[in-house]
Structure formats: C-alpha cells, structure tokens
C-alpha cells in the first residue's frame, strides 16, 4: 500500500502528497494540483505524521490546514476547484458544494477551534470585537496551529465532504432552530447549519459534533 508510509518533511517520497506553505491561495492551488490526493499545511506536518493514514482510495482528496490559514485564506474555494478538476460536476452543484464548505469551514474555525459563540456578532460593535478577538487568539501559536481537516470522497453517484475540527464538539440541540431564527428575524448569526441542511442532500454530525459530513448526489 503506497500510502501507509507518511512522507518526509518535503513530501518528496510520494507524488500524491504535497505540503502547502500556508502563504497564499495560489500556492494552495498549486499544492492541490493532480496527482496530489493529500495536502498538509507545513505547520501541521508533525501532527500529520503522528496520525494514522489509511489505505488510499480512488476518488479522494484530503487537506489539513491550520485555523489561521482557514481564517485568512480562501481554502474552501481552492479545495472545491481542486475537486472539480478531478470529478466533473455541474455549475449548480459546484456552487452548492462551495457554499457548504465555506459555511462548515467557518464553523470549524469559530465555534470548533476558537470556541467563539455566534451571539457576539449580532451588532456592528460586536462584529468588530469578534474579529479583534480572533486576531488576538491567532497571535497565540497554539491557537493559530489548531488543525482543520477536509476530506472529499466520491464515486459516480455521490460525493461526501467531511470537515473535522479540533474543538470540543457540540450538540445540535444547543443551536437555535431555523424556525427560531426565522421567527426572530433579528439574529444576524447562527444560520450556518440550517443553510447546510437546505443546500446539501445529506448532513450528518459525527464525533460529538467535531466532524460534519456533507453529502451531495452527483
């Protein structure tokens, strides 16, 4: 099995593995170019090497990035573009997948890894304070280096995207329902999960809410 041995620091042992420098969207696009199936941000390489790697499968693309990069770089967009190179998808589906990954990635950054609630963004002042808090947290190396992993697995009929954060997880019952949000009409945040349920064909929370599995019919 070619993929069971972790690569060295440069990733040069395996053509299907690349490290991303975390610098820019264009360097991420390059790192995700075929034949790569696994891409890891350089700051997470130690963590990646310690994790268990399964057997490589067809129709798979995996990316592991830091909280800092997920916040600062258009990671979701680059990932969807990389998927679209590997498996044909109509524009409407590509748009839904991009929308879903963007929502899930931001949930992973904010609520998963940084453990920031939604309510603070319900005013203009609160919104700015939230981003100031994020910047302060990302100045702490341990916070900035929290991992977020995105996996896409597909065959001719379905595509699944799994997004895993390093947080404590959550229970769906803790969130406001879409009915609550609609009835209120004032809540400026907290719509992420109801959007996911509306645009994906299936949404499943796994590992106590630390992983979200998004399913799309192809």
């Amino acid at each position: 099995m070619a993929g069971t041995t972790p690569p060295n620091a440069t990733g040069s042992q395996r053509p299907d593995f690349k490290c991303w420098d975390g610098v820019s969207a264009s360097s991420l696009t390059l790192a995700l170019s075929p034949p790569v199936t696994e891409c890891v941000e350089i700051d997470l390489l130690d963590q990646y090497n310690k994790s268990v790697h399964g057997q490589r499968i067809l129709g798979h693309l995996s990316l592991m990035v830091t909280t800092k990069s997920a916040y600062r770089q258009p990671v979701g967009k680059a990932f969807v573009e990389a998927m679209a190179i590997r498996t044909p998808m109509p524009e409407d589906l590509r748009e839904r997948i991009y929308t879903a990954i963007q929502e899930a990635m931001m949930n992973a950054v904010l609520h998963g890894n940084l453990k920031i609630g939604s309510g603070a963004r319900d005013s203009l002042e609160g919104l700015m304070q939230t981003h100031e808090l994020i910047e302060r947290m990302l100045a702490v190396p341990e916070e900035a280096r929290g991992a977020i992993r995105v996996d896409a697995i597909w065959n001719s009929k379905v595509l699944h995207v799994l997004i895993r954060d390093s947080g404590d997880g959550f229970a769906k019952a803790e969130l406001p329902s879409s009915e609550d949000i609609e009835a209120d009409g004032q809540i400026a945040s907290g719509r992420g999960l109801s959007i996911l349920e509306a645009i994906c064909d299936r949404v499943v929370l796994l590992h106590g809410g630390r992983t979200i599995k998004l399913g799309f019919n192809l």
């Binding site: 929308t99 929502e103 963004r121 319900d122 919104l127 004032q186 400026a188 945040s189 719509r191 992420g192």
Partner: peptide
C-alpha cells in the same frame, strides 16, 4: 457573486443601522 451566512448577517446589521 457569492455570499455566506456571515455576509447575510452583516446585511441584517446594515438593516439595523
């Protein structure tokens, strides 16, 4: 061309203003 839930939330804040 594209908006996420945070963008929608910001439009609600514009409505509040």
């Amino acid at each position: 061309e594209f908006i996420d839930s945070a963008g929608l939330g910001m439009l609600l804040l514009a409505r509040d203003e």
